[in-house]
Amino acid sequence: MISHAGHLEPHWHGRAAQPRRRRPALFIALIAFLSILAVAGGAIVGGGLLYAGSVASTFSSTVKHIPNAFPPAATRPVAVSTGAMNILLIGSDSRGDPTTISATGTSNQRSDTLMLVHIDADRRNVYVMSIMRDLWVPIPGNGTAKINAALAWGGTPLVVQTVEQLLGTPIDHVAIIDFQGLAGMTDALGGVDVDSPVGFTTVLKPHYTFVKGINHLDGSQALAFARERYAFPTADYQRVADQQALIRAIVSKVLSRSTLADPAAMTAFVGAMGRYLSVDEKFDLPTIIGLAASMRLDGASSIHTFTMPTGGTGTSADGQSIVNVDQNSLSALRTAYAHDQLGTLAQTR
């Protein structure tokens, strides 16, 4: 595991006043992306290219594309040719207009959560790193601020540029998602079994209660489970851990034999996901099929989730509550991304 000073220790996994509602948007994008790869990849192995092509085509016909998703080439890090792939997942909170989240320039959008998905070169493992939304980082052209401000100040390109410069690694694809698809997606799977790290009752009505351990969740319960942060002393740290637990549960259900064996159900499921997802213009149908065909995941154990190491919480000079970067771990993390060594890094922590 990766440690960080002054706060909870994030783990690698292979398996207040009335708050306003927030979107657990990023992990939905992850579910959509991994599900497409899992279903299409499994279809190629078990049902042939026709099934895989049908799944990918359904996704391609429903998903939206983000124009100009990336910053100018001159501002981007030079890629090391490892064959690995990085996908940045961006979700926005309820304050902004979802139709403008990919636009450059100032807006009222803030990214609720960020996740960086790293698919290793041999396509056998996927590493999902959550980035705390209050992480205090340099935002190009804007000084130092919370990382979630990048979307408001410069749209998708500035978010990409901020993450690329923070981690020193290029982003290959971008996805933005609307939270409303979560309940329907979970219900389409017949619910999921989530291993909750802690027991808690949600602050927001209708006050769902979850036990520590396995909980069978329908769509509404899954949405509440992923949204909650006010019930915890550690707030967003625990919410991120809960989102990661839900990711593993849904991906495990999607990868199950019974789910993969039902082409009609899976095609409908993928179509439902696509309606809530926007991706960069290069993530087209041939790319989807090609990537899916290359995946060699060994079930849910191939999906590894963790949180970017932080140096605990603090207060900025202008009085904001912030999360500090763990500078001692940042160098090793940058090296691991650059050289496709996240698996090795995990083993040494």
Rank of each mutant, 00 (worst) to 15 (best):
Q109P: 00
A293R: 13
M308L: 15
D280I: 05
R23C: 02
H7L: 11
W136H: 06
V323T: 13
A38E: 14
H13V: 14
A249P: 09
R15K: 11
I119S: 12
H11Q: 15
T58A: 07
A69P: 05
F179N: 10
G319Y: 11
M273V: 06
G105I: 02
T267L: 03
P138W: 00
G274R: 08
A241E: 15
E164N: 08
G42M: 11
V323A: 02
G168N: 05
P157S: 05
L34M: 14
V194I: 13
T82W: 12
W12K: 09
M129Y: 12
T58P: 00
L50G: 02
V55N: 05
K146C: 05
I36Y: 07
S252Y: 00
H7Y: 14
G14I: 07
N68W: 00
V128N: 04
A79T: 10
V240M: 15
A150M: 07
D280S: 04
R296E: 06
G143C: 02
R275F: 00
D262P: 07
P77F: 05
T267F: 01
T305D: 13
F210I: 03
S94N: 06
I66Q: 00
T234R: 10
R227T: 12
S130I: 04
A346Q: 15
D318E: 11
A52H: 06
Y51L: 09
S57Y: 07
Y337M: 14
G190D: 13
A268M: 02
I303W: 09
F225H: 10
A241H: 01
G191H: 11
V126G: 01
A317M: 02
A293G: 09
L260F: 09
Q347V: 05
S278Q: 15
W136A: 00
Y337W: 14
D178K: 12
R15S: 13
H7S: 14
N215P: 08
K282C: 00
D340W: 04
S130A: 13
L135P: 02
P286N: 09
I250Q: 12
K253R: 15
S252K: 14
R123N: 06
G155M: 03
A175P: 04
A52E: 06
V137T: 06
A103F: 08
D280P: 04
S258G: 04
L291C: 05
M115F: 13
G190V: 13
R123S: 07
A300Y: 07
V159L: 05
G219A: 05
L217F: 11
F269Y: 15
L30F: 04
D262T: 11
Y230M: 07
A292F: 07
H118L: 09
Q161P: 01
V39Q: 09
T348C: 00
D172E: 02
R349H: 10
L89N: 09
T344W: 02
P286R: 08
E164I: 04
A272G: 15
S302Y: 09
E164G: 08
L255V: 08
A43K: 01
G48H: 12
N108K: 11
S60N: 14
M129R: 01
A25E: 12
I147R: 08
P233I: 04
A84M: 06
G213A: 08
M295C: 10
S102W: 14
Q341W: 00
A175V: 15
Q347K: 14
A317V: 05
